[in-house]
Computed example of a mutant assay.
Amino acid sequence: MPDQLTHAGPFALGTFASGSGAFPGLVTGARVRDLSDQVPSVRALLDAWDTWLPRLHDLAGSADGTWHDLADLRVLAPLEPGQILQSGANYRKHVVDLVAAEKESVHGATPEEARADAERMMDERARDGVPYVFLGSPRAMCGPYDDIVLPRLGEQHDWELELALVIGRQGKDIAAEDAMEYVAAYTVCNDLTTRDRLYRPDLKAIGTDWFTAKNADTFLPTGPFLVPAAFVGDPNDLRITLRHNGVVRQDESTKDMIFDIPRLVAYVSTTTTLRPGDLLLTGSPAGNGAHWGVFLAPGDVLEAEITGLGRQRNTVRSHP
């Protein structure tokens, strides 16, 4: 198993596999306690999160139970989520870059004019606008060290590293000032996208095809762990870093989010009831492949990390 950053706090949660099958686990540094004598899955912990959190503290400090070396286990995606809610166009620099480039190429603005206009637009959006959110498929998920398998169709396969929050309490029409009470934990997601399948030339009036572009098998590496929110510190001040074949491509703070976590939670809960185990991805910062003019190819390696949440390492391969 590849090296990984130490998780924040005294413990984290995940799903692991050994010779005897998959099991929910309590991670403390380099060791994992098998929780299958307590619960059937990590999702079951989230269903009663307020009850389980203090019990997990006790289990982390006890020698009882079955313990494994983390290095001996396969690390799977940390949970099977309910909904996967994905926020698009939510990092200021990223969106400003996109808008400014369009104003230059399509409308003939100078670089200075284009950027100033894009900055004004983002100020207005942050003040008066609402997030842009769509649904993803849980079937796209894979583990943090699994291979990414490029689909048969499309050529511009791209990375989008994101902070994801895990819901730990049911809620609807949640007020922004109460939203953080519904966040149980955080994890790492890389929301891959096939750019040249994002727009349907046969259905231009309908617009983007999120299902096709984003939901190929293995296109959502998730984990390695769920780190309880209480251990993470300020989620609006975490570093998001992605390396493509050793080259840093994304390196940004979550401070750059246009809509912060409370506003995202409040917004999505006006439409859907949030339930324990739902994932909410908060958007990706500047530096994806489209920005660099570089896309994924077989043999590439992606290394991704977010402060205190661990590290992913995925090798890209072609479809069978």
Rank of each mutant, 00 (worst) to 15 (best):
Glu119Thr: 08
Pro81Gly: 11
Phe23Glu: 15
Glu104Gln: 15
Gln83Ser: 00
Asn245Phe: 13
Gly9Ser: 06
Pro81Ile: 04
Gly308Cys: 09
Asp173His: 10
Leu264Met: 10
Thr28Met: 06
Pro131Ala: 15
Gly289Asp: 02
Asp37Gln: 13
Thr66Ser: 14
Asp237Asn: 07
Leu192Tyr: 03
Ser253Val: 04
Leu203Trp: 14
Val133Tyr: 02
Ile206Cys: 04
Asp50Ala: 12
Asp234Pro: 10
Gln4Ile: 08
Leu45Pro: 01
Leu56Glu: 07
Pro221Ser: 08
Ser18Gln: 12
Ser105Cys: 12
Pro81Phe: 01
Ala266Met: 08
Gly29Trp: 14
Val166Leu: 04
Thr222Ala: 07
Leu5Lys: 15
Ser18Phe: 05
Asp173Ser: 15
Leu59Ala: 11
Ala8Arg: 12
Thr51Ser: 12
Asp234Asn: 14
Pro262Asp: 09
Glu102Ser: 12
Leu153Trp: 00
Asn245Trp: 02
Phe134Ile: 04
His291Asn: 15
Leu203Arg: 13
Ala175Thr: 05
Glu177Gly: 03
Gly246Trp: 09
Ser62Cys: 13
Pro235Ala: 07
Ser36Asn: 15
Val130Tyr: 14
Gln156Thr: 00
Val188Tyr: 01
Val95Glu: 09
Trp210Arg: 09
Met122Val: 08
Arg74Glu: 11
Cys142Arg: 09
Val188Lys: 00
Gln86Cys: 07
Leu165Ala: 12
Arg115Ile: 15
Ser318Asn: 00
Ala184His: 03
Val227Ile: 13
Trp49Ala: 08
Gln4Met: 06
Asp202Trp: 07
Asp147Trp: 02
Pro24Ser: 08
Leu59Ser: 05
Ser18Pro: 01
Glu160Gln: 07
Leu198Gly: 01
Leu302Ala: 07
Leu279Phe: 14
Val32Lys: 15
Ser41Cys: 10
Ala126His: 04
Asp202Cys: 02
Asp128Ile: 14
Arg92Thr: 14
Arg311Met: 06
Ala164His: 01
Ile306Met: 10
Leu281Cys: 00
Val316Phe: 09
Pro224Ala: 04
Ala12Asn: 06
Phe231Val: 07
Gly223His: 12
Phe134Asp: 03
His57Lys: 07
Ala116Met: 13
Thr222Val: 11
Leu76Cys: 02
Glu162Tyr: 04
Ala100His: 11
Met1Ala: 06
Glu80Trp: 06
Glu303Met: 10
Glu160Arg: 01
Leu76Ala: 09
Asp251Tyr: 13
Thr6Met: 09
Asp50Phe: 06
Leu70Tyr: 11
Asp158Met: 04
Ala118Arg: 05
Arg239Asp: 09
Glu181Arg: 11
Leu35Thr: 12
Met180Pro: 09
Ser20Val: 04
Lys103Ser: 11
Ala30Met: 10
Ala48Glu: 06
Gly108Asp: 12
Leu280Lys: 01
Pro201Val: 03
Leu13Asp: 01
Arg200Asp: 04
Ile148Arg: 05
Asp191Phe: 01
Pro276Ile: 06
Leu220Ile: 07
